[in-house]
Design a protein around this nucleic acid. Structure first.
Length: 585
DNA sequence: TGCACCAGCGCC
DNA sequence: AAACGGCGCTGATGCA
Protein backbone atom coordinates (compact mmCIF):
# COMPACT_ATOMS: atom_id res chain seq x y z
CA UNK A 1 0.00 0.00 0.00
CA UNK A 2 1.38 3.37 -1.03
CA UNK A 3 0.29 6.37 0.97
CA UNK A 4 1.53 9.88 1.78
CA UNK A 5 0.90 11.81 4.94
CA UNK A 6 0.44 15.45 4.04
CA UNK A 7 0.78 18.27 6.54
CA UNK A 8 1.63 21.22 4.34
CA UNK A 9 -0.98 23.41 2.67
CA UNK A 10 0.80 23.92 -0.65
CA UNK A 11 1.66 20.27 -0.91
CA UNK A 12 -1.94 19.40 -0.15
CA UNK A 13 -3.31 21.64 -2.91
CA UNK A 14 -0.75 20.35 -5.40
CA UNK A 15 -1.49 16.71 -4.57
CA UNK A 16 -5.09 17.08 -5.72
CA UNK A 17 -3.78 17.18 -9.30
CA UNK A 18 -3.36 13.43 -9.04
CA UNK A 19 -7.13 13.00 -8.82
CA UNK A 20 -7.99 14.88 -12.00
CA UNK A 21 -8.11 11.87 -14.29
CA UNK A 22 -9.96 9.34 -12.20
CA UNK A 23 -13.70 8.97 -12.33
CA UNK A 24 -14.07 8.31 -8.63
CA UNK A 25 -12.27 8.52 -5.30
CA UNK A 26 -12.14 6.45 -2.15
CA UNK A 27 -12.71 8.56 0.93
CA UNK A 28 -12.64 8.29 4.69
CA UNK A 29 -12.28 10.65 7.64
CA UNK A 30 -10.93 10.36 11.16
CA UNK A 31 -12.70 12.50 13.71
CA UNK A 32 -11.88 13.31 17.29
CA UNK A 33 -15.16 12.59 19.02
CA UNK A 34 -15.59 13.25 22.73
CA UNK A 35 -18.63 11.12 23.25
CA UNK A 36 -19.26 8.50 20.60
CA UNK A 37 -22.90 8.11 21.58
CA UNK A 38 -23.61 11.77 20.86
CA UNK A 39 -21.41 13.01 18.02
CA UNK A 40 -21.50 16.76 17.47
CA UNK A 41 -21.21 17.29 13.75
CA UNK A 42 -20.56 20.99 14.05
CA UNK A 43 -17.92 20.85 16.79
CA UNK A 44 -16.07 17.53 16.71
CA UNK A 45 -12.62 17.91 15.23
CA UNK A 46 -12.18 16.37 11.80
CA UNK A 47 -8.49 15.54 12.04
CA UNK A 48 -7.83 13.56 8.88
CA UNK A 49 -9.38 13.28 5.47
CA UNK A 50 -8.00 10.38 3.48
CA UNK A 51 -8.52 10.20 -0.25
CA UNK A 52 -7.26 7.56 -2.60
CA UNK A 53 -7.47 6.43 -6.17
CA UNK A 54 -6.18 3.23 -7.70
CA UNK A 55 -2.55 4.40 -7.48
CA UNK A 56 -2.14 6.26 -4.26
CA UNK A 57 -3.62 7.39 -0.97
CA UNK A 58 -3.20 10.82 0.57
CA UNK A 59 -3.77 11.40 4.26
CA UNK A 60 -4.48 15.10 4.87
CA UNK A 61 -3.85 16.41 8.36
CA UNK A 62 -6.26 19.28 8.96
CA UNK A 63 -4.48 20.33 12.13
CA UNK A 64 -1.67 21.81 10.09
CA UNK A 65 -3.12 22.25 6.62
CA UNK A 66 -4.57 25.74 6.18
CA UNK A 67 -8.16 26.69 5.33
CA UNK A 68 -7.11 27.66 1.78
CA UNK A 69 -7.03 23.97 1.04
CA UNK A 70 -10.76 23.52 1.62
CA UNK A 71 -12.13 25.09 -1.60
CA UNK A 72 -9.76 22.93 -3.64
CA UNK A 73 -10.75 19.87 -1.69
CA UNK A 74 -14.41 20.75 -2.15
CA UNK A 75 -14.01 20.94 -5.87
CA UNK A 76 -12.24 17.61 -6.09
CA UNK A 77 -14.72 15.79 -3.87
CA UNK A 78 -17.84 17.25 -5.43
CA UNK A 79 -16.73 16.83 -9.02
CA UNK A 80 -15.86 13.18 -8.60
CA UNK A 81 -17.86 10.29 -7.31
CA UNK A 82 -16.75 9.16 -3.88
CA UNK A 83 -16.71 5.69 -2.42
CA UNK A 84 -16.78 5.16 1.31
CA UNK A 85 -18.22 3.16 4.16
CA UNK A 86 -21.22 4.58 5.99
CA UNK A 87 -20.86 7.86 4.12
CA UNK A 88 -23.76 9.49 5.93
CA UNK A 89 -21.35 9.91 8.83
CA UNK A 90 -18.57 11.51 6.76
CA UNK A 91 -20.94 13.65 4.74
CA UNK A 92 -22.49 15.12 7.88
CA UNK A 93 -19.05 16.39 8.90
CA UNK A 94 -18.00 17.46 5.41
CA UNK A 95 -21.19 19.44 4.94
CA UNK A 96 -21.53 21.09 8.32
CA UNK A 97 -17.88 22.03 8.76
CA UNK A 98 -16.52 22.54 5.25
CA UNK A 99 -19.63 23.08 3.15
CA UNK A 100 -18.56 20.08 1.06
CA UNK A 101 -21.52 18.10 -0.24
CA UNK A 102 -20.84 15.15 -2.56
CA UNK A 103 -23.98 13.84 -4.27
CA UNK A 104 -22.51 11.09 -6.42
CA UNK A 105 -21.57 8.42 -3.93
CA UNK A 106 -21.18 4.68 -3.55
CA UNK A 107 -21.53 3.51 0.03
CA UNK A 108 -19.98 0.10 0.70
CA UNK A 109 -22.09 -0.38 3.83
CA UNK A 110 -25.29 0.14 1.87
CA UNK A 111 -23.93 -2.16 -0.83
CA UNK A 112 -23.29 -4.88 1.72
CA UNK A 113 -26.78 -4.47 3.16
CA UNK A 114 -28.36 -4.71 -0.28
CA UNK A 115 -26.50 -7.95 -0.85
CA UNK A 116 -27.33 -9.47 2.49
CA UNK A 117 -30.49 -11.43 1.58
CA UNK A 118 -32.11 -10.54 4.86
CA UNK A 119 -29.72 -12.60 6.96
CA UNK A 120 -28.50 -11.25 10.25
CA UNK A 121 -25.12 -10.09 9.03
CA UNK A 122 -22.93 -7.33 10.33
CA UNK A 123 -22.10 -4.43 8.06
CA UNK A 124 -19.23 -2.71 9.82
CA UNK A 125 -16.23 -2.05 7.59
CA UNK A 126 -14.36 -4.80 9.39
CA UNK A 127 -17.14 -7.34 8.91
CA UNK A 128 -17.68 -6.45 5.26
CA UNK A 129 -13.97 -6.63 4.41
CA UNK A 130 -13.73 -9.99 6.08
CA UNK A 131 -16.83 -11.34 4.34
CA UNK A 132 -15.72 -10.32 0.86
CA UNK A 133 -11.93 -10.68 1.03
CA UNK A 134 -11.34 -12.96 4.02
CA UNK A 135 -8.81 -10.54 5.45
CA UNK A 136 -8.80 -8.97 8.89
CA UNK A 137 -8.76 -5.21 9.42
CA UNK A 138 -7.29 -4.10 12.69
CA UNK A 139 -9.77 -1.57 14.12
CA UNK A 140 -7.98 -1.05 17.43
CA UNK A 141 -6.96 2.49 16.53
CA UNK A 142 -10.46 3.50 15.48
CA UNK A 143 -11.15 5.32 18.73
CA UNK A 144 -7.56 6.35 19.44
CA UNK A 145 -6.85 10.00 20.18
CA UNK A 146 -7.34 11.78 16.88
CA UNK A 147 -6.98 15.14 18.60
CA UNK A 148 -3.40 14.50 19.67
CA UNK A 149 -0.84 17.09 18.66
CA UNK A 150 1.28 14.49 16.91
CA UNK A 151 -0.30 11.41 15.42
CA UNK A 152 1.67 8.18 15.62
CA UNK A 153 2.88 6.45 12.43
CA UNK A 154 0.51 3.62 13.34
CA UNK A 155 -2.43 6.00 13.38
CA UNK A 156 -1.48 7.37 9.95
CA UNK A 157 -1.09 3.90 8.54
CA UNK A 158 -4.40 2.84 10.07
CA UNK A 159 -6.19 5.77 8.45
CA UNK A 160 -4.71 4.88 5.05
CA UNK A 161 -5.68 1.25 5.47
CA UNK A 162 -9.34 2.20 5.75
CA UNK A 163 -9.07 3.61 2.23
CA UNK A 164 -7.01 0.69 0.96
CA UNK A 165 -9.68 -1.82 2.00
CA UNK A 166 -12.36 0.24 0.27
CA UNK A 167 -10.36 -0.12 -2.91
CA UNK A 168 -10.36 -3.87 -2.48
CA UNK A 169 -14.02 -4.41 -1.67
CA UNK A 170 -15.56 -1.95 -4.14
CA UNK A 171 -15.13 -4.02 -7.34
CA UNK A 172 -16.38 -7.14 -5.59
CA UNK A 173 -19.46 -5.42 -4.22
CA UNK A 174 -20.19 -3.80 -7.54
CA UNK A 175 -19.95 -7.04 -9.43
CA UNK A 176 -22.23 -8.89 -7.01
CA UNK A 177 -24.77 -6.08 -7.12
CA UNK A 178 -24.75 -6.12 -10.88
CA UNK A 179 -25.41 -9.84 -10.92
CA UNK A 180 -28.78 -9.36 -9.19
CA UNK A 181 -31.42 -9.84 -11.85
CA UNK A 182 -33.52 -6.80 -12.57
CA UNK A 183 -36.32 -5.89 -14.90
CA UNK A 184 -34.91 -2.46 -15.69
CA UNK A 185 -31.54 -0.80 -15.76
CA UNK A 186 -30.71 2.14 -13.62
CA UNK A 187 -29.99 5.56 -15.02
CA UNK A 188 -28.55 8.75 -13.60
CA UNK A 189 -25.21 10.00 -12.46
CA UNK A 190 -24.60 7.39 -9.74
CA UNK A 191 -25.20 4.53 -12.15
CA UNK A 192 -23.09 6.13 -14.84
CA UNK A 193 -20.07 6.96 -12.68
CA UNK A 194 -19.88 3.70 -10.76
CA UNK A 195 -21.28 1.36 -13.38
CA UNK A 196 -24.10 -0.05 -11.30
CA UNK A 197 -27.13 -1.42 -13.13
CA UNK A 198 -29.65 -2.29 -10.46
CA UNK A 199 -32.07 0.64 -10.01
CA UNK A 200 -32.36 -0.03 -6.28
CA UNK A 201 -28.61 0.40 -5.93
CA UNK A 202 -28.76 3.70 -7.79
CA UNK A 203 -31.63 4.97 -5.64
CA UNK A 204 -30.10 3.90 -2.33
CA UNK A 205 -26.75 5.48 -3.19
CA UNK A 206 -28.35 8.71 -4.38
CA UNK A 207 -30.36 8.76 -1.16
CA UNK A 208 -27.34 8.70 1.19
CA UNK A 209 -26.35 12.41 1.00
CA UNK A 210 -29.95 13.58 1.30
CA UNK A 211 -30.48 11.49 4.40
CA UNK A 212 -27.38 13.14 5.87
CA UNK A 213 -29.00 16.53 5.25
CA UNK A 214 -32.27 15.43 6.86
CA UNK A 215 -30.39 14.42 10.00
CA UNK A 216 -28.42 17.66 10.08
CA UNK A 217 -31.55 19.75 9.59
CA UNK A 218 -33.50 18.31 12.49
CA UNK A 219 -37.24 18.52 12.99
CA UNK A 220 -38.64 21.72 14.48
CA UNK A 221 -40.07 21.39 17.99
CA UNK A 222 -42.05 23.85 20.07
CA UNK A 223 -39.71 23.62 23.02
CA UNK A 224 -41.82 25.67 25.39
CA UNK A 225 -44.85 23.54 24.75
CA UNK A 226 -42.72 20.42 25.16
CA UNK A 227 -41.57 21.57 28.60
CA UNK A 228 -45.09 22.47 29.70
CA UNK A 229 -46.40 19.17 28.48
CA UNK A 230 -43.64 17.25 30.16
CA UNK A 231 -44.29 18.90 33.50
CA UNK A 232 -47.99 18.27 33.32
CA UNK A 233 -47.74 14.64 32.23
CA UNK A 234 -45.00 13.86 34.78
CA UNK A 235 -47.18 15.20 37.60
CA UNK A 236 -50.18 13.27 36.36
CA UNK A 237 -48.18 10.07 36.08
CA UNK A 238 -46.75 10.36 39.58
CA UNK A 239 -50.18 10.93 41.01
CA UNK A 240 -51.64 7.92 39.22
CA UNK A 241 -48.75 5.63 40.08
CA UNK A 242 -48.67 6.45 43.80
CA UNK A 243 -52.41 6.19 44.05
CA UNK A 244 -52.46 2.80 42.38
CA UNK A 245 -49.58 1.35 44.37
CA UNK A 246 -50.94 2.53 47.71
CA UNK A 247 -54.39 1.21 46.96
CA UNK A 248 -53.47 -2.19 45.55
CA UNK A 249 -49.84 -2.87 46.52
CA UNK A 250 -49.09 -4.07 43.02
CA UNK A 251 -46.53 -2.66 40.61
CA UNK A 252 -48.56 -1.78 37.50
CA UNK A 253 -45.51 -2.47 35.31
CA UNK A 254 -44.86 -6.02 36.35
CA UNK A 255 -46.80 -8.03 33.77
CA UNK A 256 -46.76 -11.20 35.84
CA UNK A 257 -47.75 -9.62 39.12
CA UNK A 258 -50.50 -7.66 37.45
CA UNK A 259 -51.82 -10.69 35.64
CA UNK A 260 -51.78 -12.82 38.81
CA UNK A 261 -53.44 -10.09 40.80
CA UNK A 262 -56.17 -9.66 38.18
CA UNK A 263 -56.92 -13.34 37.95
CA UNK A 264 -56.87 -14.03 41.70
CA UNK A 265 -58.28 -10.88 43.27
CA UNK A 266 -60.66 -9.85 40.55
CA UNK A 267 -61.42 -13.24 39.06
CA UNK A 268 -60.74 -12.13 35.50
CA UNK A 269 -60.06 -14.67 32.79
CA UNK A 270 -57.06 -13.63 30.75
CA UNK A 271 -55.47 -15.12 27.66
CA UNK A 272 -52.28 -17.11 28.17
CA UNK A 273 -48.89 -16.00 26.93
CA UNK A 274 -46.58 -18.34 25.07
CA UNK A 275 -45.10 -19.46 28.38
CA UNK A 276 -48.50 -20.28 29.80
CA UNK A 277 -48.58 -17.24 32.07
CA UNK A 278 -51.74 -15.16 32.05
CA UNK A 279 -51.27 -12.05 29.92
CA UNK A 280 -52.11 -8.56 31.08
CA UNK A 281 -51.71 -6.85 27.75
CA UNK A 282 -53.98 -3.91 27.01
CA UNK A 283 -55.82 -5.80 24.31
CA UNK A 284 -56.90 -8.39 26.85
CA UNK A 285 -57.76 -5.82 29.48
CA UNK A 286 -59.80 -3.54 27.29
CA UNK A 287 -62.90 -5.71 27.61
CA UNK A 288 -62.73 -5.13 31.40
CA UNK A 289 -62.12 -1.42 31.24
CA UNK A 290 -65.36 -0.69 33.06
CA UNK A 291 -63.81 -2.28 36.19
CA UNK A 292 -62.17 0.64 38.07
CA UNK A 293 -58.89 -1.19 38.80
CA UNK A 294 -58.44 -2.14 35.16
CA UNK A 295 -59.31 1.37 34.03
CA UNK A 296 -56.66 2.80 36.37
CA UNK A 297 -54.10 0.35 35.10
CA UNK A 298 -54.70 1.21 31.47
CA UNK A 299 -54.57 4.91 32.29
CA UNK A 300 -51.21 4.58 34.09
CA UNK A 301 -49.71 2.63 31.24
CA UNK A 302 -50.76 5.05 28.55
CA UNK A 303 -49.65 8.04 30.62
CA UNK A 304 -46.25 6.45 31.15
CA UNK A 305 -45.97 5.84 27.44
CA UNK A 306 -46.56 9.51 26.69
CA UNK A 307 -44.14 10.60 29.42
CA UNK A 308 -41.39 8.36 28.06
CA UNK A 309 -41.91 9.66 24.58
CA UNK A 310 -41.76 13.29 25.70
CA UNK A 311 -38.52 12.62 27.56
CA UNK A 312 -37.09 10.82 24.59
CA UNK A 313 -37.82 13.86 22.41
CA UNK A 314 -36.47 16.33 24.94
CA UNK A 315 -33.24 14.38 25.30
CA UNK A 316 -32.36 15.06 21.66
CA UNK A 317 -33.72 18.56 21.28
CA UNK A 318 -31.46 21.58 20.96
CA UNK A 319 -32.47 25.13 20.20
CA UNK A 320 -35.91 24.25 18.94
CA UNK A 321 -34.97 21.26 16.80
CA UNK A 322 -34.86 17.55 17.49
CA UNK A 323 -32.11 15.54 15.84
CA UNK A 324 -32.85 11.90 15.13
CA UNK A 325 -30.69 9.22 13.63
CA UNK A 326 -31.91 7.16 10.70
CA UNK A 327 -30.71 3.74 9.66
CA UNK A 328 -31.11 3.84 5.92
CA UNK A 329 -31.71 0.11 5.52
CA UNK A 330 -32.99 -1.07 8.87
CA UNK A 331 -35.39 -3.72 7.62
CA UNK A 332 -34.53 -6.09 4.80
CA UNK A 333 -37.47 -4.60 2.93
CA UNK A 334 -35.51 -1.36 2.68
CA UNK A 335 -37.58 0.43 5.26
CA UNK A 336 -35.67 2.87 7.42
CA UNK A 337 -35.68 3.07 11.16
CA UNK A 338 -35.38 6.16 13.28
CA UNK A 339 -33.91 6.23 16.76
CA UNK A 340 -32.72 8.62 19.46
CA UNK A 341 -35.44 9.67 19.29
CA UNK A 342 -37.61 7.45 17.15
CA UNK A 343 -39.56 9.99 15.08
CA UNK A 344 -41.46 7.28 13.25
CA UNK A 345 -43.71 6.27 16.12
CA UNK A 346 -44.93 9.61 17.42
CA UNK A 347 -48.60 9.23 18.41
CA UNK A 348 -50.99 11.69 16.73
CA UNK A 349 -51.70 13.54 19.98
CA UNK A 350 -48.02 14.52 20.32
CA UNK A 351 -47.62 15.66 16.73
CA UNK A 352 -48.74 19.26 17.40
CA UNK A 353 -45.45 19.63 19.34
CA UNK A 354 -43.61 19.58 16.03
CA UNK A 355 -44.26 23.11 14.96
CA UNK A 356 -42.77 25.12 12.13
CA UNK A 357 -40.69 28.07 13.37
CA UNK A 358 -42.00 31.63 12.88
CA UNK A 359 -42.39 32.56 9.26
CA UNK A 360 -42.23 28.93 8.17
CA UNK A 361 -44.66 26.13 7.35
CA UNK A 362 -44.68 22.37 7.29
CA UNK A 363 -45.70 20.48 4.19
CA UNK A 364 -47.14 17.09 5.08
CA UNK A 365 -47.49 14.60 2.25
CA UNK A 366 -48.38 10.93 2.29
CA UNK A 367 -49.16 8.31 -0.32
CA UNK A 368 -52.72 6.94 -0.14
CA UNK A 369 -53.42 3.20 0.21
CA UNK A 370 -50.01 2.66 -1.20
CA UNK A 371 -49.52 -0.98 -0.25
CA UNK A 372 -52.79 -2.03 -1.81
CA UNK A 373 -51.93 -0.19 -5.01
CA UNK A 374 -48.48 -1.73 -5.10
CA UNK A 375 -49.94 -5.18 -4.50
CA UNK A 376 -52.38 -4.78 -7.38
CA UNK A 377 -49.53 -3.70 -9.65
CA UNK A 378 -47.18 -6.39 -8.43
CA UNK A 379 -49.55 -9.31 -8.98
CA UNK A 380 -51.05 -7.71 -12.10
CA UNK A 381 -54.58 -8.28 -10.88
CA UNK A 382 -56.79 -6.92 -13.65
CA UNK A 383 -59.89 -6.52 -11.51
CA UNK A 384 -58.14 -4.55 -8.79
CA UNK A 385 -56.16 -2.49 -11.30
CA UNK A 386 -59.38 -1.59 -13.08
CA UNK A 387 -61.07 -0.62 -9.82
CA UNK A 388 -58.19 1.69 -8.95
CA UNK A 389 -58.08 3.14 -12.46
CA UNK A 390 -61.78 3.96 -12.23
CA UNK A 391 -61.19 5.68 -8.91
CA UNK A 392 -63.29 3.21 -6.95
CA UNK A 393 -63.23 2.96 -3.19
CA UNK A 394 -61.44 -0.37 -2.99
CA UNK A 395 -62.94 -1.52 0.32
CA UNK A 396 -66.45 -0.76 -0.83
CA UNK A 397 -65.68 -2.44 -4.13
CA UNK A 398 -64.44 -5.63 -2.46
CA UNK A 399 -67.46 -5.64 -0.14
CA UNK A 400 -69.86 -5.41 -3.06
CA UNK A 401 -68.22 -8.26 -4.94
CA UNK A 402 -67.70 -10.56 -1.97
CA UNK A 403 -71.21 -10.03 -0.63
CA UNK A 404 -72.86 -9.84 -4.06
CA UNK A 405 -74.47 -6.48 -3.27
CA UNK A 406 -74.71 -3.22 -5.17
CA UNK A 407 -71.66 -0.95 -4.84
CA UNK A 408 -73.88 1.88 -3.67
CA UNK A 409 -75.64 -0.16 -1.00
CA UNK A 410 -72.63 -1.17 1.06
CA UNK A 411 -73.04 -0.21 4.70
CA UNK A 412 -70.30 1.24 6.86
CA UNK A 413 -69.94 -2.04 8.70
CA UNK A 414 -69.67 -4.03 5.50
CA UNK A 415 -67.00 -1.68 4.27
CA UNK A 416 -65.06 -2.15 7.52
CA UNK A 417 -65.35 -5.88 7.10
CA UNK A 418 -63.97 -5.61 3.58
CA UNK A 419 -60.97 -3.67 4.88
CA UNK A 420 -60.07 -6.64 7.00
CA UNK A 421 -60.54 -8.89 4.01
CA UNK A 422 -58.44 -6.76 1.68
CA UNK A 423 -55.51 -6.32 4.00
CA UNK A 424 -55.63 -9.70 5.56
CA UNK A 425 -56.05 -11.76 2.45
CA UNK A 426 -53.48 -10.17 0.19
CA UNK A 427 -50.87 -11.16 2.77
CA UNK A 428 -52.24 -14.65 3.20
CA UNK A 429 -54.27 -14.53 6.40
CA UNK A 430 -56.07 -17.82 7.06
CA UNK A 431 -59.87 -18.07 7.31
CA UNK A 432 -59.46 -18.81 11.00
CA UNK A 433 -57.37 -15.70 11.64
CA UNK A 434 -59.75 -13.67 9.53
CA UNK A 435 -62.60 -14.75 11.75
CA UNK A 436 -60.72 -13.85 14.92
CA UNK A 437 -59.56 -10.58 13.48
CA UNK A 438 -63.07 -9.54 12.42
CA UNK A 439 -64.30 -10.26 15.91
CA UNK A 440 -61.45 -8.56 17.79
CA UNK A 441 -61.34 -5.46 15.68
CA UNK A 442 -64.92 -4.86 14.70
CA UNK A 443 -66.92 -7.07 17.00
CA UNK A 444 -68.31 -8.65 13.85
CA UNK A 445 -69.22 -12.24 14.57
CA UNK A 446 -68.71 -14.40 11.54
CA UNK A 447 -68.51 -18.15 11.55
CA UNK A 448 -65.54 -20.08 10.27
CA UNK A 449 -67.78 -21.15 7.37
CA UNK A 450 -68.43 -17.52 6.47
CA UNK A 451 -64.76 -16.64 6.78
CA UNK A 452 -63.95 -19.52 4.46
CA UNK A 453 -66.57 -18.27 2.05
CA UNK A 454 -65.11 -14.73 2.05
CA UNK A 455 -61.68 -16.21 1.57
CA UNK A 456 -62.87 -18.26 -1.39
CA UNK A 457 -64.77 -15.34 -2.93
CA UNK A 458 -61.83 -12.98 -2.55
CA UNK A 459 -59.50 -15.21 -4.52
CA UNK A 460 -62.20 -15.91 -7.08
CA UNK A 461 -62.65 -12.19 -7.70
CA UNK A 462 -59.00 -11.24 -7.58
CA UNK A 463 -57.46 -13.94 -9.74
CA UNK A 464 -54.09 -12.23 -9.78
CA UNK A 465 -53.79 -12.70 -6.04
CA UNK A 466 -54.80 -16.31 -6.30
CA UNK A 467 -52.20 -16.90 -8.98
CA UNK A 468 -49.56 -15.12 -6.91
CA UNK A 469 -50.21 -17.09 -3.72
CA UNK A 470 -50.35 -20.37 -5.58
CA UNK A 471 -47.05 -19.71 -7.31
CA UNK A 472 -45.29 -18.63 -4.13
CA UNK A 473 -46.56 -21.67 -2.23
CA UNK A 474 -45.48 -23.92 -5.07
CA UNK A 475 -42.00 -22.44 -5.16
CA UNK A 476 -41.63 -22.74 -1.40
CA UNK A 477 -42.74 -26.36 -1.56
CA UNK A 478 -39.92 -27.09 -3.99
CA UNK A 479 -37.22 -24.91 -2.40
CA UNK A 480 -36.28 -24.21 1.17
CA UNK A 481 -35.41 -20.62 0.32
CA UNK A 482 -36.54 -18.53 -2.62
CA UNK A 483 -35.62 -15.09 -3.89
CA UNK A 484 -38.27 -12.39 -3.88
CA UNK A 485 -37.93 -8.97 -5.51
CA UNK A 486 -39.43 -5.54 -5.09
CA UNK A 487 -40.66 -3.66 -8.17
CA UNK A 488 -37.32 -1.86 -8.39
CA UNK A 489 -35.17 -4.97 -7.98
CA UNK A 490 -34.52 -5.13 -4.25
CA UNK A 491 -33.88 -8.75 -3.36
CA UNK A 492 -34.32 -10.96 -0.34
CA UNK A 493 -34.16 -14.69 0.32
CA UNK A 494 -37.16 -15.99 2.24
CA UNK A 495 -38.34 -19.32 3.56
CA UNK A 496 -41.75 -18.43 4.94
CA UNK A 497 -44.89 -17.73 2.94
CA UNK A 498 -45.85 -14.59 4.85
CA UNK A 499 -42.39 -13.14 4.33
CA UNK A 500 -42.50 -14.02 0.65
CA UNK A 501 -45.73 -12.12 0.08
CA UNK A 502 -44.84 -9.23 2.37
CA UNK A 503 -41.38 -8.41 1.11
CA UNK A 504 -42.19 -7.32 -2.45
CA UNK A 505 -44.97 -5.03 -1.28
CA UNK A 506 -43.25 -3.39 1.65
CA UNK A 507 -40.00 -3.38 -0.34
CA UNK A 508 -41.58 -1.57 -3.27
CA UNK A 509 -43.04 0.94 -0.82
CA UNK A 510 -39.52 1.72 0.41
CA UNK A 511 -38.26 2.01 -3.16
CA UNK A 512 -41.04 4.49 -3.85
CA UNK A 513 -40.45 6.76 -0.88
CA UNK A 514 -36.70 6.88 -1.31
CA UNK A 515 -37.07 7.65 -4.98
CA UNK A 516 -39.50 10.47 -4.18
CA UNK A 517 -36.95 11.96 -1.77
CA UNK A 518 -34.15 11.79 -4.34
CA UNK A 519 -36.34 13.35 -7.04
CA UNK A 520 -37.56 16.08 -4.72
CA UNK A 521 -33.99 17.07 -3.88
CA UNK A 522 -32.95 17.04 -7.51
CA UNK A 523 -36.03 18.98 -8.63
CA UNK A 524 -35.99 21.64 -5.98
CA UNK A 525 -32.53 23.02 -6.81
CA UNK A 526 -31.67 25.74 -4.35
CA UNK A 527 -35.24 26.31 -3.18
CA UNK A 528 -35.35 26.43 0.59
CA UNK A 529 -37.74 23.54 1.49
CA UNK A 530 -36.04 20.89 3.62
CA UNK A 531 -37.23 17.41 4.47
CA UNK A 532 -37.37 16.96 8.23
CA UNK A 533 -39.01 13.57 8.67
CA UNK A 534 -39.80 10.41 6.73
CA UNK A 535 -42.32 7.86 7.97
CA UNK A 536 -42.50 4.98 5.47
CA UNK A 537 -45.06 6.57 3.15
CA UNK A 538 -45.02 10.13 4.45
CA UNK A 539 -42.73 13.11 3.87
CA UNK A 540 -42.59 16.19 6.09
CA UNK A 541 -40.96 19.34 4.73
CA UNK A 542 -40.01 22.52 6.59
CA UNK A 543 -40.26 25.55 4.29
CA UNK A 544 -40.32 29.34 4.52
CA UNK A 545 -43.87 30.67 4.24
CA UNK A 546 -43.02 32.58 1.07
CA UNK A 547 -41.80 29.48 -0.79
CA UNK A 548 -44.63 27.20 0.29
CA UNK A 549 -46.58 27.15 -2.96
CA UNK A 550 -43.60 26.36 -5.19
CA UNK A 551 -42.32 23.70 -2.84
CA UNK A 552 -45.71 21.99 -2.65
CA UNK A 553 -45.68 21.95 -6.43
CA UNK A 554 -42.21 20.44 -6.64
CA UNK A 555 -42.91 17.86 -3.96
CA UNK A 556 -46.12 16.84 -5.74
CA UNK A 557 -44.31 16.50 -9.04
CA UNK A 558 -41.60 14.42 -7.43
CA UNK A 559 -44.00 12.08 -5.63
CA UNK A 560 -45.93 11.64 -8.85
CA UNK A 561 -42.75 10.94 -10.84
CA UNK A 562 -41.64 8.33 -8.34
CA UNK A 563 -45.12 6.84 -8.35
CA UNK A 564 -45.17 6.57 -12.12
CA UNK A 565 -41.84 4.75 -12.14
CA UNK A 566 -43.00 2.13 -9.63
CA UNK A 567 -46.65 1.88 -10.66
CA UNK A 568 -47.19 1.52 -14.40
CA UNK A 569 -50.77 0.31 -14.38
CA UNK A 570 -52.22 1.64 -11.16
CA UNK A 571 -52.64 5.37 -10.59
CA UNK A 572 -50.69 6.77 -7.66
CA UNK A 573 -52.40 9.08 -5.19
CA UNK A 574 -51.20 11.14 -2.28
CA UNK A 575 -52.47 13.75 0.14
CA UNK A 576 -50.47 16.90 0.55
CA UNK A 577 -51.20 19.77 2.92
CA UNK A 578 -49.63 22.88 4.36
CA UNK A 579 -49.72 23.29 8.12
CA UNK A 580 -48.22 25.12 11.05
CA UNK A 581 -47.64 21.91 12.96
CA UNK A 582 -47.49 18.19 12.27
CA UNK A 583 -50.79 17.46 14.00
CA UNK A 584 -52.74 19.67 11.61
CA UNK A 585 -54.68 17.97 8.85
C1' DT B 1 -24.04 -5.81 38.30
C1' DG B 2 -24.39 -6.37 33.58
C1' DC B 3 -26.28 -8.64 29.63
C1' DA B 4 -29.66 -10.99 26.72
C1' DC B 5 -34.17 -11.81 26.08
C1' DC B 6 -39.02 -10.82 25.79
C1' DA B 7 -43.41 -8.51 26.60
C1' DG B 8 -45.89 -4.63 25.71
C1' DC B 9 -47.03 -0.85 22.78
C1' DG B 10 -46.13 3.28 19.80
C1' DC B 11 -45.93 4.06 14.40
C1' DC B 12 -46.39 2.51 9.15
C1' DA C 1 -56.92 1.15 7.63
C1' DA C 2 -54.76 -2.86 10.12
C1' DA C 3 -51.25 -6.31 11.55
C1' DC C 4 -49.84 -10.93 7.43
C1' DG C 5 -45.11 -7.92 8.01
C1' DG C 6 -41.46 -4.19 9.60
C1' DC C 7 -39.10 -1.18 13.29
C1' DG C 8 -37.37 1.29 18.49
C1' DC C 9 -37.93 2.17 23.54
C1' DT C 10 -38.80 0.80 28.29
C1' DG C 11 -38.56 -2.21 31.91
C1' DA C 12 -39.25 -6.92 33.98
C1' DT C 13 -37.13 -11.25 34.20
C1' DG C 14 -33.60 -14.69 34.34
C1' DC C 15 -28.95 -15.91 34.24
C1' DA C 16 -23.97 -15.46 34.85
Amino acid sequence: MRYSYITDTKEAVASLQDFQKDSYLFLDTEVSIKDFSTPDYTKDFVRLIQIGNKNTIYVYDLLTIGKEFIPHLKQTIENRGIIGHNLKFDIKYLLSQFNIFPTVVFDTMIASQLLSLGDKEKHSLQAVVYRFTQTEVDKRLQSSDWGAETLSPEQIKYSATDVEVLRQIFPILKERLNSIKTANKSSGKVAEVFGVYNPVVAVEMAFVPYLAVIELTGMPVDQQKLEENLLQVATEYQRLYIQFYQKHGVDPFSPQKVANWLTKKLNLTLPKTVKGQPSSQDKALRQYKHIPEVGELLKIRSTKKVLDKLNEIKQHTKEGRVYTSFRQIAAPTGRMASSQPNLQNIPPKLRPLFKAPDGRKLIIADYSQIELRIAAEYVKDETMIKAFTEGKDLHRFTASLVLGKDYGEITKEERQMAKAINFGLIYGISPKSLMEYAKNTYGVDITLKEAEEFHRRFFQIYEGFHRWHTQVKEKLRKNKRIYVYSLLGRRMAVSRFTEAVNFPIQGSGSDLLKMAVVLFNKNKGSLDGKIVNLIHDEIVVDVSASHTEETVEILSTSMKQAGDIILKKVPVEFEISVANHWGEK
